[in-house]
Amino acid sequence: MSLGGRNRGSILDKPLSRGKGEVSLNCFALLFSEVVQYCQNKSQTLPELQNRLHELGRRVGVKLIDLYFVRERNGKRETKLLSILLYVKTTFWKVLFGKEADKLEHSNDDENTYYLMEKEPIVNKFISVPRDKSSLNCAVFIAGIIEAVLTGTGFPAKVSAHWHKGTTYMIKFEESVVGRDNQMEDR
């Protein structure tokens, strides 16, 4: 990092914005459309395209962790599995998308898996998926954001996006996460 020899104020000297800025949805929709096209041009296959979108989402997510915890929670992070999930569903979703996510469910078959559901993610609002690519869900970008936030706050997980009741994000935590959480409960 080139901290020395800089005569103008760096970005860290500026006060943190309150994050209340708003931009037209059309702008975002068109920008996201270009993001998808850019990724598509770089990809040969559908999974590759999804991976690229997922990866870009993860990079966005990483940057949101500190920003939101500092601004919304005075820098205090979550230690319990359920609290971090609720944080994502409520606070986080509300700041980022203006509303809470619709539903959070625990899988019946696998205690490591949770589902976060949203009828209409804003990224999908203006996307019509071509018939030959019907499995493509561009909300995989948002799945990437969630994955980065969970993993970056100490709850390593894999998050994917699926077409089910709108869009369902499948959150699969590593076993150690649930194990640790159970241990904390016991105490």
Binding site: G19, G21, E22, V23, S24, L25, N26, C27, F28, L31, F32, E34, V35, Y38, K42, L56, R59, V60, K63, L64, L67, V95, L96, F97, G98, I122
Partner: peptide, 23 residues
């Protein structure tokens, strides 16, 4: 009334630029 959080746009654009710089 259709607005989105400007940071979502900022960061989405930023990652796109960063990806291009790599590519």
């Amino acid at each position: 009334t259709k607005k989105v959080n400007s940071e979502l746009v900022t960061l989405t654009y930023g990652t796109l630029v960063a990806q291009m710089v790599k590519d």
